[in-house]
Design a protein around this nucleic acid. Structure first.
Lengths: 221, 221
DNA sequence: ACCTGAACACCGTTCAAGT
DNA sequence: ACCTGAACACCGTTCAAGT
């Protein structure tokens, strides 16, 4: 937490390590982030990194938090539901820009980045009439849903070779769905038709809206 | 897909490898599953396993599918929503019994096990009045939510050392939440009071219900 | 206090060699 | 066709040694 001031501007620091890690992750994906390559990028020895950061888990958590903290600042609308929708979309876009974030968020829900999401969602749900338990449940539902999407996205990014055409990619998946056993997978075969034209972002938001509608309806009871 | 019939009952097979893998995963967790330990359990060489299964990813997927296929058979109630709730709880309980499933489901949503969940959810949503797009969105929302929970659970299992008392564990987390900065985390600090007494399973089902209510309400529009 | 880089203890995967 | 197990190419992490 405390930072010793360093004389030389080119000295190693948590900040610099995290930024280099993000650069590698963004460019070549999660599997490319190695203490050896990271050390090379920073022109230092691999052991030096351990003086500034505990281990790889901490490094990934710091990188995730570094980006999510920026993504979640501001973005406040007037009414709570609009704010929740705006935040959800912001998270979606951020994961889209940094696909490796998906695995981090869904796989380590107790790191600060995920906690921030939970807090912000819950904060918007804090209305006079709503019992605490309902708030807890609603915030959990929204977080689970968003973190679930994060996982899906991470998997998609892993699957999608860099630079592949998105439309071709979806066509490909739709074709695979069509090859499924009609008796066992009627629903997915029906949805395969819609898949290539569907918009992930819109569908994601539709899910948020379902939950928000549910929250609203539950209040009336 | 095709299996060559083997003479000797003690011969290696996909089935036997998968079952041994599940035994290791259940007993000692994901990090304990190694081709070396697996080979030792099966009294064979580590290379032999590759004759029956492509790689570790395929092994984990096969193990996940092996358990989820059993978990999802039957379990049909009369009306769709009751069936969805029953399925969701069944999935919850299965992940609870095999925590390593969580990481698999949330991290690899295109493996057969996750597709099965999506299919079954969608199948229940297939009602005359509902447009295809709404069905797609609803099934996605439910799947995302369930897979999101799976990730949370996997993380919890990783965090919870084997044999730790559950109540003490939740107390511990609540205490950590209370240590958060009151200005930045008011919601989580408020929820910390509820955390030790709260029931994961009930809360999970409450989220499913929010989505189901949302789906129902959206139909009326 | 901070950095170096060889060394350690692992991995998943391959493959020549066996039966 | 199936199995063996040494070997390969990696990892994250540690630590004596430097400055």
């Amino acid at each position: 937490m405390t930072k010793a001031p360093s004389r030389r501007g080119d000295a190693l620091s948590q900040e610099k390590i995290v930024e280099a890690a993000i650069a590698i992750l963004d460019k070549d994906g999660e599997s490319a982030l190695t203490f050896r390559t990271l050390a090379k990028h920073l022109a230092t020895g691999s052991g030096a990194i351990y003086w500034h950061i505990a281990d790889k888990t901490a490094l990934l958590a710091a990188a995730t938090d570094h980006i999510m903290a920026r993504a979640l600042t501001g973005a406040g609308a007037t009414d709570p539901h609009a704010t929740i929708r705006a935040m959800a979309l912001k998270i979606f876009d951020t994961i889209n820009a940094h696909p490796w974030l998906g695995a981090q968020l869904s796989g380590e829900p107790w790191q600060p980045a995920a906690m921030r999401i939970f807090e912000r969602m819950g904060h918007q749900l804090h209305a006079p009439g709503v019992p605490e338990e309902a708030q807890f449940n609603a915030a959990s539902a929204l977080s689970n849903y968003i973190l679930g999407l994060a996982g899906q996205y991470a998997a998609a990014a892993r699957r999608l070779p860099r630079g592949t055409d998105r439309v071709a990619f979806l066509d490909n998946i739709a074709a695979q769905w069509m090859k499924l056993d009609p008796a066992a997978y009627p629903f997915m075969r029906r949805m395969a038709v819609q898949l290539p034209a569907h918009d992930d972002r819109v569908q994601f938001l539709a899910g948020i809206d379902l939950i928000l509608i549910g929250i609203e309806a539950a209040k009336q009871t």
